[in-house]
């Protein structure tokens, strides 16, 4: 339940952002990452961004996500 996944911010509207996550769009709350900007990667846990990631960090975590998704199939 502490699973978190990286996603890229496409647009921000107040405390909410639209992110893309492996090609899928979803909404996340950004109140915990007020510094997040459009184009940033964030780590998303249960609908809330919990930290901003560097691109390098995001790329590394993407590999994990891919494995996780394959693992759950």
């Amino acid at each position: 339940m502490c699973l978190a996944v990286p996603a890229k911010i496409e647009s921000i509207d107040g405390q909410k952002a639209t992110v893309s996550l492996a090609g899928m769009r979803s909404d996340v709350v950004t109140s915990l990452t007020p510094e997040a900007k459009v184009g940033d990667y964030v780590l998303v846990h249960a609908g809330y961004a919990i930290t901003v990631l560097s691109e390098q960090e995001a790329r590394e975590t993407f590999t994990i996500l891919r494995e996780m998704v394959q693992g759950s199939e």
Partner: peptide, 13 residues
């Protein structure tokens, strides 16, 4: 509201 430190901030919000 279950979960550890990862999840609790969301409940607070």
């Amino acid at each position: 509201a279950v979960g550890f430190e990862t999840t609790a901030p969301a409940t607070a919000l």
